[in-house]
Design a protein around this nucleic acid. Structure first.
Lengths: 129, 129
DNA sequence: AGCCTTACTTACTTTTTAGTAACAATCGTG
DNA sequence: CACGATTGTTACTAAAAAGTAAGTAAGGCT
């Protein structure tokens, strides 16, 4: 769906919002970043225990992608049983305020949004039947 | 994956980041909001032309959910062929700075992230073989 | 010898998300 | 009387994301 662009403000697939959303708009990445920001250095199991409903697999996947992007470090302690600790890098820390920004908006407006949605549903029912 | 919570900072399914991401972390919602913020009142086809690769279906779905949440208004002009115009509400406008915040981070750091990812891939190859 | 622990990995299945393409509605125009 | 214009809807399909559950490693403990 595209044609001419009269006013030249096209949101292409390379634009920054899309890149950020593609990488961190998933279910868990921002949560892990925020948790590490709040709690500092944590090991695998501690992260898992503080994020509701995350599976081991998704925690692994999420941590790996954050590590690969340079947002967190991963330190392995060669003990038995194994211990691995994760911590935000400075790059990771630099993301935090921007997540907080979104979070604060959510805190402020989420109730209104849920009300709006409810009202919209009712309106739909009325006009449909 | 959860047990005890020693330091009581659990990210539950009702926490604001998760709610915001669940609703606006999709592929298109934030793009539509940013576009309307930049360009003001637009009709359906104009939005479609300014967001690369969005399908008619996803544009409809996205606009409906934004409308239902009260972030945009939808005005129908009873003409032939039909004309429908969309515009941000004040609630929608209030989201914009927070999206911009994320966007600006992306602009600043996305190149670094891509380099990090590349370096990480190389490192993996080396240690694997 | 068998079980415990932690941090994974793997194979498989389910769920969610998104894409494609055809159709609807309606009036003016050629 | 078929066609074009615009904003959709619908059915179907494909792809991506995520969940589940079992397995692995390695040493300590009983």
């Amino acid at each position: 769906m595209k044609e001419n662009n009269p006013d030249k403000f096209i949101l292409t697939s390379e634009c920054p919002i899309r890149q950020v959303l593609d990488r961190f708009g998933d279910k868990w990445s921002m949560l892990v970043v925020e948790l590490l920001s709040h709690r500092g250095r944590l090991r695998f199991s501690e992260i898992g225990q503080n994020i509701e409903d995350i599976s081991q697999k998704m925690l692994t996947v999420t941590l790996r992608s954050l590590e690969s992007d340079g947002l967190i470090t991963r330190e392995i302690f060669p003990e038995i049983p194994p211990r691995v600790e994760y911590e935000l890098t400075s790059l990771g820390k630099s993301l935090v305020p921007h997540i907080m920004s979104l979070t604060s908006w959510g805190i402020e407006h989420m109730a209104t949004i849920l009300e709006n949605r409810k009202a919209y549903e009712l309106k739909q029912k009325k006009t449909t039947y």
